[in-house]
Write a protein that binds this DNA or RNA. Sequence first.
DNA 1: TAACACTTGTTTTTT
DNA 2: ACAAGTGTTA
Length: 783
Amino acid sequence: MEEKELLSQLNDSQRAAVEYLDGASLVIAGAGSGKTRVLTYKIAYLLMKGYEPWDILALTFTNKAAKEMQSRIGSLVGADRARYLNMGTFHSIFARILRREAAHIGYNPNFTIYDEADSRSLIKTIIKELQLDDKIYKPAGVHSKISMAKNHLIMPADYALDRELISRDIDTRQPAISQIYTTYQQRCQNANAMDFDDLLVLTYILFREHEDVRRKYADHFRFILVDEYQDTNYAQQCIILQLTKENPHVCVVGDDYQSIYGFRGANIDNILKFSKLYANAQLFKLEQNYRSTQHIVSAANSLMKKNERQIPKDVFSTNAEGEKLTLKPAYSDKEEAMIVCKDIKRIMAADHAQYCDFAILYRTNSQSRSFEEEMRKQDIPYRIFGGLSFYQRKEIKDIIAYFRLIANPNDEEAFKRIINYPSRGIGNTTLAKIAEAARKYGVSFWDVICSPTHFGLNVNKGTLNKLDVFRALITSFMEKMPKVDAFELGQEIIKVSGITADIYSSREPEALSRQENLEEFLSGMQDFVEGRREEGREDEIFLSDFLQDVALMSDLDSDSNGEDEQSRVSLMTIHSAKGLEFSTVFIVGLEENIFPSPMAASSARELEEERRLLYVAITRAEKHCILTCARNRWRYGKMEYDTPSRFLRDIDPALLNVESERGRMDSSVDTDYTARYSGHTSRYSSIYNQSKPKEVHLTQSHSNQNLRRVVPSSSAASTVSSSMVSTNAGNLSVGSIIEHQRFGIGVVQKLEGTGENTKATVEFKNAGTKQLLLKFARFSIVG
DNA sequence: TAACACTTGTTTTTT
DNA sequence: ACAAGTGTTA
């Protein structure tokens, strides 16, 4: 594409933002104003202006956003150029840099990335070791304090000296936080492990302590772009500044209205004060919304008038006026789901829409249940995003722990996880002794079991022997690692360690789906192996790289674009809906104590963030935006009663229809729903007091069980792959034409082995010749 | 050490 | 309601 043509596809303000390359710039992009378009076009424009793809660093909030943007740029400038862009999340890009520069900061390149669960588990152990009251010190709470400190680049030593923090900890009766933090950090380093926040903090320290390294990267990244800047934290801001201080070749894009990650340390001030940080920063505002109808945009604007802290802007739409927002109050969570399902069917018929045009957005993941249940009942296909991700399932975490220990034997959390899984008779007593010896000598658990006598491990002969068997097992895996590929090793691990035996002998109903999940995991691993082989990057830290991808991957990122994924209703939290758009959006559970969350209702600042969250939700909608609330809701095992959300009153009443519970549309003049709802004498309460809680409860739990068994939620892919295998593997012969999920069309050249272990050599049209294990390969037979 | 019953808190969002 | 954690027994 020509430069001229490229620019002609943008409106005036978009074009101005794209063309400005002289210094720092801040693009305030209202919802639906073509923010991604500006970013992608700007990168394409840079490439036309003589920048090379590897000169450009583009940081996004999710892996998915990075992937999408990369493919969009690919279609503008060609995929072969786009693939060399440095594009990814802060966390993944910096993890890569840290691996390369690990030696400078006292780590090995094969460091582990601790996830939230690992961090909490470690903190829990520390709390116990320090003999602190675990009623007062909750691992999650402690970790969030540590995390906040890290996001502000406050190191343990700084923390101990920070009077404000210390006095705050004393107020919450947790004076030992500082000590826990110090220990935690030490233990992470001893284990050669970093938590999510360390990926930022240590990058910052790396650049601060090693000017030559900083210089190298500052020169290397000739242009830096940051997406979703409103969700960056202080540490991220500082790193960007480190890379751009001599040469402010940086463009940040964001929308303060959509800053919704304050709880995670994101600082809305970053965007509000960008111009103070970069003296001559240019400000561009994108205010035309191309996504939504006028009514939706106006309603969203009216809501935001209630917030104080913001960059004033005037988002407008020239689309059709559209219909007003509609509030549909329900008696119960169950009826709320019924109302939504009914509306989906109604709008589908009226608009000739597909299921994928609909999204149901909620504040908390737990709200998905009633909808799942109702949609199953009504045969409406749906897909749930978020929640327990594939990689957080027990069986997956177990196999990953094996790999982690192989890649980094000092990884204590992995060690603890698998030392007795599958059961090998090494219990807590023994583990405690190992821990004690490890502390005493300042070595890792692994070191202790490698030379137990040397570290004075006081256990009986039998236990000693069991430990040595485990050591030998892991050692044998480590020795195999460089020789066989990771996928083969994975197969060996599950077989030799006894995981297979454990799972296959289990008679629990979930055992089958666990088997499938393991297969799915190994198959994903094979894809990764093959992908790497193509790129000729099969180096020693290969395994660490794979584990890193897995650790930084959220469920949202695993793109399931299978045919049947195409037409499903999406269910997700508002947070995960950021950046997406749907023709029809249902925002459900608009009640006090849910939305705003009771955790946030105490401070004005947090309340404003909740309001922005509703703004984000509303602006996901293109044509229809339907709000619901329920009078009664089944929560914490009992029925709860809540009034409609205060935010409903923040929306201009002229833009909000309120439907009566009877299903008749009241005129929009009726804004008295709040009062009506809080009254206890109304005719509705009598209906509700005919106590059906028990019934409700029974149906709920019953169908939930069915649901679990039939659909291993969100991993539809695993069901697909296993069914394909069983039907296809037998029919395959030399000469068959297959379509592989990853490699495309290919012809079978050779078949080796029998039954489940058949290996096929396939020559692919576009991907060359590959060997596939039929058991795991994802393909279908075409001819 | 492992299996079981009983108690407890949990529900805000996620890289 | 549920999962995770605790304590009791074999």
